[in-house]
């Protein structure tokens, strides 16, 4: 079947089978920032925005996304770089394989949580984003500094 989505601001149409995951659909569309880390919706690496909210693209069928607005990191380069610079300054990207999914969720989070969100609220929001390199501490430091720079609570 033909599936049409709005991908990073532009209409995009491609062939998909009924069981094509949005994850595969997006990678085939050239959005290589979307990573596959598991098959069980358990790692957060494939996080993208569907109509502005975070979804796991492994848990959405391409057919279900038809007609919706999908944003990947390819479409949020400036925002990714802005927060990413804070992450990089903490060394919190390490191997970087989980970074796109994690950052997509951080960018969704800042639309939902206040800048003075507690560490616990932040951890809770991002609990589904696994990282095996960093032990998460540097990511929290980066988020706190980013939020502080955006005018929220100081770190």
């Amino acid at each position: 079947m033909q599936v049409t989505i709005t991908l990073n601001g532009k209409p995009y149409t491609a062939e998909a089978t009924p069981d094509t995951q949005l994850l595969t659909f997006l990678r085939d569309a050239g959005c290589k920032s979307v990573k596959c880390g598991c098959e069980t919706s358990g790692c957060g690496l494939c996080t993208v925005h569907m109509d502005g909210k975070s979804v796991l693209s492994c848990s959405v069928l391409a057919a279900q996304a038809a007609g919706h607005t999908i944003t990947t990191m390819e479409g949020l380069q400036e925002q990714a770089a802005e927060f990413g610079a804070f992450l990089a300054d903490e060394g919190g990207e390490q191997c970087g394989f989980c970074s796109p999914g994690f950052i997509m969720n951080v960018l969704a989070m800042i639309n939902e949580l206040d800048c003075d969100a507690s560490d616990e609220e932040i951890r809770e929001y991002l609990a589904g984003n696994l990282c095996r390199c960093t032990g998460y501490q540097s990511q929290l430091r980066a988020i706190r500094k980013y939020l502080a720079a955006k005018g929220g609570k100081a770190e």
């Binding site: 290589k32 380069q77 990413g84 610079a85 992450l87 990089a88 060394g91 990207e93 970087g96 970074s99």
Partner: peptide, 21 residues
């Protein structure tokens, strides 16, 4: 010094730099 990684920005902006990409 606490220097930023030389490949950091390509990683945090999701560039296709891994084998599968």
């Amino acid at each position: 010094q606490a220097v930023r990684k030389v490949d950091a920005m390509s990683l945090v902006t999701g560039k296709p730099v891994y084998t599968g990409d």
